[in-house]
Structure formats: structure tokens, C-alpha cells
Design a protein around this nucleic acid. Structure first.
Length: 883
RNA sequence: GGGAGCAUAGCUCAGUUGGUUCAGAGCGUCUGCCUUACAAGCAGAGGGUCGGGGGUUCGACUCCCUCUGCUCCCACCA
């Protein structure tokens, strides 16, 4: 069989993915095996794959594939999230481009467009995940707005409402004037923003609504809201302003009279010490307003424009109004000064619009009890966060969480199952029919037409927090007393959750709450928090910067295995990933290395007449030990979620140990056959190595594993058992390491003296050197004869391996002066080293306090360096004598 | 403003109870090689006062304090 010199991923990947699907290798059903479960962090249904997904899903896939090979019943549930704000705004934008305005549509018409959009673009991302090799159980694919999942969401709402956890009220909320909806506190991002600090004169009223010549100065960043001012507030302890007590002042431009009030909230040192109180448009002012019973005047509409209550600048956008009112105030003589100012401003996570604090009627879920349990789940270790530095962050959040605003003024999502009676009373029920029954208890004779359902939908996270439950059993969410179905009973709790720290609170914490509430158990045992993928310069990947490569292009160019390896190479848990295409090149190179090692091995011809050479026998024993050692290390890394360390161990095992040393040691001469024993061992090693690599690089390993032997239909490397470590002698490994050092020493001499690798050299040894590994040295260093060093070795190049001296006789090629200089430098080093070791040993406090083992090590250092010094001195003497 | 974290080779990072010659890895760099698996490769080499300062200890990359620089999270000083 002829294999090309380079691995071609494109040809093999689709073939094997199709094979895996045909054979339903990814599908899982409950059985007697131990389950291993992961639910995918559901990507936005209309999203497309980006580098963050690649990292996340590669990690998920590695864990699932490893668990599967460990003999567990592995199940990775895929699906998508309806992402109400993101999707709705995409649909709105698309309609707008077609000249259709959302306002002109009925709810039903709009939803029809939205579903159309979802059918067209939904799930693209799932097919992209297939390209990456994700071994999801596609038969279990879910969508957060599937009818039964939506039903679970509604049941959950009804459940918490009846429990008294859900209430409705007018609160100051974060209003997104672009998304036209309220958003939760967690969806607001504060960024320092440069703006202006306007110092405004408010003239004191004479009591008749006319200005006197006295005035006070307030400082504000939002002059466009002055028309909504309800008072001016000073600190009662601020003597500068006691003269203002009981006075009234006039709002500039509109001459409205407002009182001066006192509240200790006001910082005397900040600004001018006078605060304008605008209850409708600032959270703190709202609180002050409640304390002082101030009227609330809302002058900004849904779109962030001034409404008619503002009296002036009606219809202007709030930022245009700010610019215009500055001029107006200046003209009117009310503008004292304007300073540059930087302050944190809230932006909408989804639309990047500046959040407008706004009063509105919203639904809330009480968080205190839920948060308390969810905190306990992490504090007690029932849920482990990896890395655990996130425990602090988590605790802080859970201890300071505020009630969750769960209503959104959108159409795309689960509509809140609250129904209003004509008199404004509300009933909450799963269906309109049930709602009507409840309504009749309040209003006998009510008919369906009397009920009006709440217009709002629920926050997306109000559905995704049920995900680990609802993907298995849609009845259990909302019904803590229900008996879980067989899937849920088997797969829940899931094992690991891999996700980004940015949704630790949005999603992870809330899933823990829902799990505790409905399952009385946490939804997962380990939460592996990845870093954020950044570019080489540390910048976040973003469309506007154009620094985000398309993963599909990368897969096409380098292969999925290369992309997977490239991502994992640089990913340790919790720290950000600085992506660079060179890492993916490295992945591709590794594929090629595996490919060519395979070509070499399978190109060998077994000759039954050939005896196993000593070098091969040693190498086989050694590599068997090395393999076991590496498996132990890899298992340890996996158990601690050190995925990139596990990967690097495997990478070096294959490249350095297997290819650079083992294969070179057993490689038959050109054209010669190989003995059966070595060949079989080599094939066995290769088989084990492929299995070890498979979770990370599924495609190439399947390709080669299938190629290695005749496989029957339905066989796959992905269902093979992961190699297990055997007993091994550590001495074998250290002896072989000495052989490698000896080989490197000889090669180094060749390099220095410009001696071709083809030219044979002699080797002489003085001191202890494991004789068992000498055949390997002879072969790899191309040695003609090896023996004890005897007599004058001054005409030889000398180097040391551990405490042994090795000589390569080189008549006429040795520069005695140069050798002498090197030896004297060595001598100097070891004498200093010895001196420091002896200083330590002569310190009684050291010998008295340090553990025996540590002292013994120091003594060994002492005797070793003494031996080295002696041999160096001898070498110097003999060199000098021969001169 | 509060909290957390980071600082180790040119770059990205390991360093898991303070003690094996512990100062490491990968990549990059430099030198020599188209050696019959692989130039996407082979062989070799160089490279760091472990951010600065102080302390504890027989012993500190590791523990404590402090300074400097960066990052993230939380937060209603207009």
C-alpha cells in the first residue's frame, strides 16, 4: 500500500465522521455501565462558529472521547439556545432591510418571520461542530424553544409563582433603548466613558415662581434630564448650604419650582455638594425620591428620546438633546462651566446601547433562598470550580445578588403565563384554560375574552437554567415531586461542564439553583472554566477588529485535528488563550509526524530469519516502560483537568521518545528485513499511541487505526479501551536516558569536529555506565567499537555522562590547548559547586533540621563532585604530560 | 471605590506540601544537514539575579510584608 508523504485531512475527515454517524457511535442509551454526561453550553441558534466555540467544544469532545474509551457510557447532549434579544434584534434588522417595521406587525406575524429565520439559519452552528469532530449524540439535539422545553419553562414560572418567589412590580430597571427591553443587572457592562461635567445655576425662587439673583450650582453629567428634576438635595451636615433650607429653586429653561431637601446620601466633597434629584432617571435618585416622597416624572421614552413631559426638545434623542441643551443653558446664562469628566457608564451587553435607568413594571424572581443553596453547593465542594479561584468571585456574587428581573419586552421567547382580568387582577397558569378556571374563582362568569395575557417574554436564561434537566426530562422542571424519567434518572447529575467564566453567573449559578430546586442535587460535579480566546496581541476576538479567523477556513486549511491540537496546546484552565495560527501549524506538523511514522513502520518487511538485535531488544523494553510511565502521567493530568499538560505529555512521548529514539533504535538497515518480535512490539506501541492521541485528534487516529489491520464493519478506535499502564522498572528509563546522553555527546563531537554521521567512531568508557544500553549507543552514534578506557586518553575527545567519562579517540583532530581550557573551566565549576555543598553540610543546623533524605542527597552531591574533580584533574595531568 | 488574580527564556506558559544538578517545556532564534518516514523534517547550540526591595528559615521561584506594572470581576458618588 502506497501512502503519500503528506497527510491529507480533507479526504479522511468527512469519511470517518460519516462512518461514526452511520454506526451511531455517538448515541447513548441508559444501560448498566457508569454514565458520563456532558450537556453542551447551547450556542445561540442563529450563531456561527467562532474560536471560543472551538476551544470550548474541543475540550468537551476530548473529555467525552476519553470517558468513552475509559469504558463509560458517554453522552454529550447538543442543542441551541433561542437567545431572545440577540435573535430578535437580528430578525428586526433583517425585516428592516426588507422595509418592514416590527411595529407594523402583529405578534403572530413577527413570530412567523422569526421562526422562518430560525429554520433557515438555526443549527448552522451544529453542523459546523460536526466539522470539528464533536461526538455529540445528535439524536438528542434540543432547542430551548422546543415545545416541550418551553412547557418546562412555563411550568417553572408557575411553580415559582405559586411558591411566592415570583412577583411583579415597578422597579428601576436597566432599559436598553435599542433592544427596547429591560435587561438584567448581569447584562449591563460598565465601562469608563469620557463625558462632560456640567455645572448649572439653579436660581432661588422668590416664592412666586420668579427667580431672585441668588443661585446654587449643581454638577451633572446629564443636563438633558433637568426637566425631570424633582428636588435639589444637600447634605444636612453641610453648613455651606444651610441658607438653602426651606427654599425653592427654579429648574433652568422651564422655570419649574422644586424644593431643596436634605439627605445624607449626598457627598459634600463631590461636585458642588448640591445634587439634582431626578427620580425617574437615576437609581439613587429614585431611592431618595421614595424617602422624600417626591413625584416621579419620566421624560424619556422607550427609544431614549425626550417625550412631551420634557416640555422642551421633545422628540430629540437623549444625546442630541444633551448637546442642544448645553447651548440653550449657556444662552440662558445658567451654564457656569463645563469640565471634562470620566465616569462609568452602563452599556447593554447585547446591543451596546447606553443603558437608561428607567422605571417600569417588570417580573422578578426572588433570589435569596435560591442563592443561599447555590452558594452552599460550591462551598461544600459538591460542585467543583476549576480553577478554584472562581470560588471567591462566585461567593461574592451569591452573597450580593439582587432579585432577578425575568421579564423582557420582546416577542421571541416564552411568553409569560400571567393573565390579567379586566380589573387588573392577575392569575398565573400553564394554559389559558387553566387561567380561566382560576379567573372564575375571582370573577365568576369570566370568559376567555376577559383575559389578556402578559405581553412580555421570559429572559433567555430562565430557560437555559433548566438545560441539564430539561434536555432529558421536560416534566421534571417545575415539578420537584415528579418521578424523573429513566433518562434523567440515569444521566443526572451530569459530570463536567465546560464553559467560559463570563457566564458563570448568568448560567452556571442559575443551573445550580434550578438543580437544587427541582432535583435536590447539583446539575454537575465539575465546572471547567476556559479562558477567553484572544489574538496574539491580547485583544478580544471581534468582528470589528477583524482579528477573528473563521474556524472553518482553518479546518479546511490545516485539518480539524490540527485546529483542535493548536487550540489545546495553549489552553490552561482559567487563563486567557492567546491564539496564533502558528499553533495550528504545529498541530498540522504533528499530524504529519504521526502520518510519516506510520509510513515508516508499515513499510517494514518482516523477515523470520532475522534475530532480534540487542539494540532493538533494549529499545522495546525501554519504550514499554516509557509508555507506562507516560500513561500514568496522562491519567494524572486528566484527573486534574490539566488537558494541555496531558496533551504535551502525549506529544513528547510520540515525537521525542517514539520517533526520535525508539524508531531510530529499532529501524532496520535500508533494504533489510525486521525481526518479527520487534515488529510486533512496534505495531503494539503504535496502536497504544494512536489510542492515547485519539481524544484530541480523532480523525487521523481513526484513519491509521483502521489502516493498521483488517477491521470489520462497526469497529472503531473511539470505542477501544484507553491504554492502561503496566508495571515498569524506573531504572530502565534512567539507564536509557544515559544512553541518549552518550549518543548526544558523540553527535556533539561530530558537529564540532565536522565529522560525518556516516564515519564510524570508537568509544571508550571510564567509570560506571549501564552496559545493557550500549547497543543502542553503538547503533545511534555509529560506533565501531566500544570498550574500557585504558592508558593515555589524551588524544581523545572527552565528555561526561553522570559520573562516567566517555572518550572518542580522534587522532590528530584534538586541539590540546582547547581541551585544556575546557577542562579547567569544568574543574573550576565543580570546585565551586563542591565548596557550596560542603558549606551546607558543615552547617550543623542544616544537618540537624533537614530531613535525612535531603542530607543524603547533599552527601551524594559531595562524593559525585569529588569523583568528577578527580577525573578532571587526571585528564588535565595526562594532557599536560602528553604536550 | 471594593474584591480577586498575575508578573519565571525573545513569545506562550508549567513549576502540584519550602529540599533530588530545579531554574523547566513548547514555539521561536542560531549553527550544520535535501541522511533511503517526515525540510510540515533531522542533528546540535545559545538563552532567565524566577518584576524591585525587605523579612521568616539551615534552606525561598515556592511562605509573609511592601513597592511597581498589568489583567479580570463587582460597584448607584451625581
Amino acid at each position: 500500500m502506497e501512502l503519500p508523504a503528506k497527510y491529507n485531512p480533507a479526504e479522511t475527515e468527512d469519511k470517518w465522521y460519516a462512518y461514526w454517524l452511520e454506526n451511531k457511535f455517538f448515541h447513548s442509551e441508559p444501560d448498566s455501565r457508569e454514565p458520563y454526561t456532558i450537556v453542551i453550553p447551547p450556542p445561540n441558534v442563529t450563531g456561527i462558529l467562532h474560536m471560543g466555540h472551538v476551544l470550548n467544544n474541543t475540550l468537551n469532545d476530548v473529555l467525552v472521547r476519553k470517558a468513552r474509551m475509559d469504558g463509560k457510557n458517554a453522552c454529550w447532549v447538543p442543542g441551541t439556545d433561542h437567545a431572545s434579544i440577540a435573535t430578535e434584534s437580528k430578525v428586526v434588522a433583517k425585516l428592516k432591510a426588507e422595509g418592514i417595521s416590527k411595529e407594523d406587525l402583529t405578534r403572530e406575524e413577527f413570530l412567523r418571520h422569526a421562526w422562518e429565520w430560525k429554520e433557515k439559519h438555526g443549527g448552522i452552528i451544529l453542523s459546523q461542530l460536526r466539522k470539528l469532530g464533536a461526538s455529540c449524540d445528535w439524536d438528542r439535539t434540543k432547542f430551548t424553544m422546543d415545545p416541550d422545553l418551553s412547557e418546562a419553562v412555563i411550568n417553572t414560572f408557575v411553580y415559582f409563582y405559586n411558591k411566592g418567589y415570583i412577583y411583579r412590580g415597578v422597579r428601576m430597571v436597566n432599559w436598553d433603548p435599542v433592544g427596547l427591553t429591560a435587561v438584567s443587572d448581569e447584562e449591563v457592562i460598565h465601562r469608563d466613558t469620557t463625558s462632560k461635567f456640567y455645572h448649572l445655576r439653579y436660581y432661588i425662587s422668590d416664592g412666586q415662581g420668579n427667580p431672585t439673583d441668588k443661585y446654587l450650582i449643581i454638577a451633572t453629567t446629564r443636563p438633558e434630564t433637568i426637566m425631570a428634576d424633582a428636588a435639589i438635595c444637600i447634605n444636612p451636615a453641610d453648613e455651606r448650604y444651610h441658607w438653602l433650607r426651606g427654599k425653592k429653586v427654579l429648574i433652568p429653561l422651564i422655570n419649574k419650582e422644586i424644593p431643596v431637601i436634605e439627605d445624607s446620601y449626598v457627598e459634600m466633597e463631590f461636585g458642588t455638594g448640591c445634587l439634582k434629584v431626578t427620580p425617574a432617571h437615576d437609581v439613587n435618585d429614585y431611592e431618595i425620591g421614595i424617602r422624600h416622597n417626591l413625584p416621579v416624572l419620566d421624560i424619556i421614552d422607550d427609544h431614549g428620546c425626550l417625550n412631551e413631559k420634557a416640555q422642551i426638545l421633545v422628540g430629540e434623542d437623549r444625546f442630541d438633546a444633551r448637546r442642544k441643551i448645553e447651548d440653550m443653558l449657556r444662552e440662558a446664562g445658567n451654564l457656569e462651566k463645563v469640565e471634562a469628566y470620566t465616569s462609568p457608564v452602563g452599556y447593554s451587553e447585547r446591543t451596546n446601547a447606553v443603558i437608561e435607568p428607567r422605571l417600569s413594571m417588570q417580573w422578578f424572581l426572588k433570589m435569596d433562598a435560591l442563592a443561599k443553596d447555590a452558594l452552599e453547593s460550591v462551598e461544600s465542594g459538591k460542585v467543583k470550580l476549576i480553577p478554584d479561584k472562581y470560588r471567591n468571585t462566585y461567593r461574592h456574587w451569591m452573597e450580593n445578588v439582587r432579585d432577578w428581573c425575568i421579564s423582557r419586552q420582546l416577542w421571541w421567547g416564552q411568553q409569560i403565563p400571567a393573565y390579567y382580568l379586566p380589573d387588573g387582577q392577575v392569575v398565573v397558569a400553564q394554559t389559558p384554560e387553566k387561567a380561566l378556571e382560576l379567573a372564575r374563582e375571582i370573577m365568576p362568569g369570566a370568559v376567555a375574552e376577559d383575559l389578556r395575557q402578559d405581553e412580555d417574554v421570559l429572559d433567555t436564561w430562565f430557560s437555559s437554567w433548566l438545560w441539564p434537566i430539561s434536555v432529558f426530562d421536560t416534566n421534571k422542571a417545575g415539578h420537584p415531586d415528579a418521578v424523573p424519567n429513566s433518562d434523567l434518572a440515569y444521566y443526572y447529575p451530569t459530570n463536567d461542564l465546560v464553559t467560559g467564566p463570563d457566564i458563570l453567573f448568568f448560567w452556571v449559578a442559575r443551573m445550580i439553583m434550578a438543580g437544587n430546586e427541582f432535583m435536590n442535587d447539583v446539575p454537575f460535579r465539575n465546572v471547567y472554566l476556559t479562558g477567553i480566546v484572544r489574538d496574539k496581541l491580547g485583544r478580544k476576538m471581534s468582528k470589528t477588529l477583524g482579528n477573528s479567523p473563521d474556524p472553518l477556513d482553518l479546518i479546511e486549511k490545516y485539518g480539524a485535528d490540527a485546529v483542535r491540537l493548536g487550540m489545546l496546546l495553549c489552553s490552561s484552565a482559567g487563563s486567557d488563550i492567546l491564539y496564533d495560527e502558528s499553533q495550528i501549524e504545529q498541530g498540522r506538523n504533528f499530524c504529519n509526524k504521526i502520518w510519516n511514522a506510520y509510513r515508516l513502520v508499515t513499510g517494514w518487511n518482516v523477515d523470520v530469519n532475522v534475530q532480534q538485535p540487542d539494540a532493538s531488544a533494549v529499545a522495546v523494553d525501554w519504550f514499554r516502560a516509557k509508555l507506562s510511565q507516560a500513561i500514568c502521567t496522562v491519567e494524572d493530568h486528566f484527573s486534574k483537568f490539566r488537558i494541555s499538560d496531558a496533551l504535551m505529555t502525549i506529544y513528547k512521548l510520540f515525537w521525542d521518545d517514539f520517533c526520535a529514539w525508539y524508531l531510530e533504535a529499532v529501524k532496520p538497515a535500508f533494504g533489510a528485513g525486521i525481526d518479527k518480535e520487534t515488529y510486533n512490539a512496534t505495531i503494539g506501541f503504535f496502536d497504544a499511541l494512536l489510542k492515547m492521541i485519539h481524544p484530541v485528534m480523532p480523525f487521523i487516529t481513526e484513519e491509521l487505526w483502521q489502516n493498521m489491520a483488517v477491521r470489520s464493519e462497526g469497529e472503531t478506535i473511539m470505542n477501544q479501551r484507553y491504554p492502561a499502564a503496566g508495571e515498569y522498572r524506573a531504572e530502565l528509563i534512567s539507564d536509557f536516558a544515559m544512553a541518549c546522553e552518550a549518543v548526544a555527546g558523540v553527535r556533539n563531537i561530530r558537529q564540532q569536529k565536522n565529522i560525518s554521521p556516516k564515519e564510524q567512531l570508537e568509544l571508550r568508557i571510564k567509570g560506571e555506565f549501564p552496559s545493557g544500553v550500549l547497543p543502542v549507543v553503538v547503533k545511534l552514534a555509529n560506533i565501531s567499537s566500544v570498550g574500557q578506557a585504558e592508558g593515555d586518553m589524551s588524544a581523545a575527545q572527552r565528555f561526561m555522562v553522570s559520573t562516567a567519562e566517555l572518550f572518542v579517540p580522534l587522532d590528530g583532530l584534538v586541539d590540546l590547548g582547547e581541551e585544556l581550557r575546557k577542562l579547567e573551566a569544568d574543574l573550576d565549576y565543580y570546585r565551586n559547586f563542591l565548596a557550596s555543598v560542603r558549606r551546607k553540610l558543615s552547617n550543623e543546623r542544616f544537618t540537624a533540621n533537614a530531613p535525612e533524605a535531603v542530607v543524603a542527597v547533599e552527601r551524594k552531591k559531595e562524593s559525585d563532585s569529588l569523583a568528577k574533580i578527580e577525573s578532571i584533574e587526571n585528564a588535565i595531568n595526562s594532557l599536560k604530560n602528553s604536550k
